[in-house]
Amino acid sequence: MNENKLIEVDKLVKHFPVKAGLMNTKQIKAVDGVSLYIKKGETLGLVGESGCGKSTLGRTILRLYEPTSGRVLYNGTAIFDGNSRKQPKALTFRRKMQIIFQDPSASLNGRMTVGEIVREPLEIHGLFPNKAERANRVEQLLELVGLNSEHANRYPHEFSGGQQQRVGIARALAVEPDFIVCDEPISALDVSIQSQIVNMLEDMQERLGLTYLFIAHDLSVVKHISDRVAVMYLGKIVELAAADDIHAVPAHPYTKTLLSAIPIPDPRKSKANKRIILEGDIPSAIDIPPGCRFHTRCPYADKPECREREPELREVSPGHFAACHFVN
């Protein structure tokens, strides 16, 4: 099992400094010590509320944000090591690691044609030096994502949201990566288009043997696409398990409330659904509560332990990890 790990993340930390006064700087602890691995060909779903650090984690793994500390390994080689003073150049590993963004209209350059957008990564990495071959490759990529070669001369604004996202996917696939971070790739799309893109991502994975980190706040899509799911809360992973287990036997109180909060498109079931309504909002990532991060909102946190000691992520059943003092 170990040799199959494509991505390994070890105690990864990303803090952003913010000015809190003239002399005072505070840290936003967006990612606060995350360890996980992703196996080859696997999809790891990452869910959590806005502000929990899930997008930051995705971007920090790719070093789009420089990590504060910790370690990231790609295929056994460090692409970031907090203990060493010199980090490898991004260009050396970016060819293998790409990202698809949430808002396709914001992540495509409006002054470039679709052809130029998809060609750019090829030029940066010096692939297909022959001009004709490169044009050929662009055409091939556009067809791969369900567009056609005449689309290459058009500009992003001429496309619908779903088509723009296809362009974003073609750009990510251009350099033949192994690993793609999908950062909420369908949240900005219309409902009737979302399932088209999910199907396409799954097809690509099968055909090209890709590994995904799939970030989303929609648990039903994550359940569908993921092999394993990690639930994040305030910069830390609170539960990690196989996708079916997370939904069938959630262990952490936060996962339980998150699942019960999702409206089910079925009026009778939705009336029968006993909902755990959380009090209040997610605390600020600047002042993280002491002890268990979730204790300020947790319906079960009545023990002093919850306020005093931070629970470790531990294995509660084979392959099922949770960070809570009271899960057995």
Binding site: Q163, S192, S195, V198, E202, V221, I262
Partner: peptide
């Protein structure tokens, strides 16, 4: 057909996982 298509296309938490989603074809 649109209502049926929408209901069919959504992955659901309360159902067993399907191999593939059934999307509505085309664009809005």
């Amino acid at each position: 057909p649109y209502t049926r298509g929408l209901l069919r296309s959504m992955p659901r938490l309360d159902e067993v996982r399907r191999d593939r989603l059934i999307p509505i074809k085309g664009s809005p």
